[in-house]
C-alpha cells in the first residue's frame, strides 16, 4: 500500500517540465487545483484533462507510473462516488427500498471521480518532476513575502529539507531496532490491532531517543559550520527565472483564460 503512493516521489528524467523553476510548478499546481474546484462544468473538466495530458506528455513521466499513484486513493474515490450516487436528490432512475440512484447523482458522481483523478495526478506531476530540495527551495523563495508577517519561512524550509534527509536514516534505524527487539523475543506480527500497536512501543522509545540524540549532534555540526539562520546566507544554486519559466507563466495564464471563457460561453 505505502509503496503505491507516487505522491511525493521523484521521477528523474530530462524534460522541459523537470527543468522549470519550482516556484512556477508550485504556483501552477495550486492554480490548477483551484481551477478544478471553481470551474465545475463538464467542458472545464475536459479542458483540464487535456491540459494535464499535454503536461504529462511533456514531462516524459510514464503514464503507467502516474496511474499507479491513483491506486492509493481508489477507496476514497469509491466512497465519494457511492455517496454522491445515492445521496444526491433529483429524478430517480433506479430504486431499491430506501436506496435510490438519481440522474443528477450519476452526473455528480462521475464528475467528482474525474475531479479527484485530475487533482491527484496534477499534484503528483509536480512532485514527480521536482526534487524535494527544489521544492523546499521554491517554497522558501516563493513564500518569502510571508517573512514580513514574521513567518519563519527559511527555518521551515530548512526543517523540511533536514527531515527529508533523515527519513532514510531513521527508516534504517527503525529496521535495526525492530530486529534487535525481535532477537530478544519481541513479536510484531501476531495479535489484534491493539496488541500490535502496543508491541511497537519498545521500537518507538529507542527510536525517539536516538532521533533526539541525532538532532543534538546535527545542531552542533551546523553551528560548527557557521549556521546562524537565513540572514546573510548565500546559495550555491539560487533560484532564477529563465525564458522557459516566463513562457510557463504565460501558458498558465492562457489556461486560466480558456477555462474562464469556457465557463462563460457554455
Amino acid at each position: 500500500m505505502l509503496r503505491d503512493i507516487t505522491l511525493g516521489q521523484y521521477y528523474p528524467a530530462d524534460s522541459v517540465i523537470h527543468k522549470l523553476d519550482p516556484r512556477v510548478k508550485l504556483l501552477g499546481t495550486v492554480l490548477y487545483i483551484v481551477s478544478l474546484f471553481v470551474f465545475g462544468k463538464p467542458v472545464n473538466y475536459l479542458l483540464a484533462a487535456v491540459f494535464l495530458i499535454i503536461l504529462i506528455r511533456l514531462s516524459k513521466v510514464p503514464v503507467s507510473f502516474m496511474v499507479r499513484g491513483l491506486r492509493a486513493i481508489f477507496i476514497l474515490m469509491l466512497i465519494t462516488a457511492v455517496f454522491n450516487l445515492f445521496l444526491t436528490p433529483g429524478t430517480v432512475v433506479w430504486q431499491l427500498w430506501k436506496l435510490k440512484i438519481t440522474k443528477e447523482g450519476i452526473r455528480v458522481a462521475i464528475l467528482m471521480v474525474i475531479r479527484l483523478i485530475l487533482l491527484v495526478m496534477g499534484s503528483s506531476l509536480m512532485t514527480l518532476t521536482t526534487t524535494p530540495n527544489d521544492l523546499t527551495d521554491g517554497m522558501e523563495k516563493g513564500l518569502g513575502f510571508l517573512k514580513k508577517i514574521h513567518v519563519p519561512v527559511h527555518e521551515i524550509a530548512m526543517m523540511m529539507s533536514i527531515a527529508l534527509r533523515f527519513i532514510p536514516i531513521l527508516m534504517e534505524e527503525t529496521d535495526k531496532i525492530m530486529k534487535a527487539q525481535s532477537a530478544r523475543g519481541a513479536d510484531f506480527d501476531t495479535g489484534n490491532l491493539i496488541q500490535k500497536a502496543k508491541s511497537l512501543v519498545p521500537v518507538l522509545v529507542p527510536l525517539f531517543i536516538s532521533a533526539f540524540r541525532r538532532a543534538n549532534d546535527l545542531a552542533m555540526a551546523m553551528e560548527a559550520r557557521g549556521y546562524h539562520g537565513g540572514e546573510g546566507r548565500t546559495k550555491m544554486r539560487p533560484l532564477e527565472y529563465h525564458r522557459n519559466d516566463h513562457i510557463a507563466y504565460l501558458v498558465l495564464a492562457g489556461y486560466l483564460a480558456i477555462m474562464i471563457a469556457a465557463k462563460m460561453l457554455t
Binding site: L164, R165, I169, R214, D217, L218, M220, A221, M222
Partner: peptide, 11 residues
C-alpha cells in the same frame, strides 16, 4: 565529528 550521518546536512 564522530558520527558521519549526523553531520551531513545536504541531501
Amino acid at each position: 565529528f564522530q558520527n558521519p550521518d549526523n553531520q551531513i546536512i545536504g541531501t
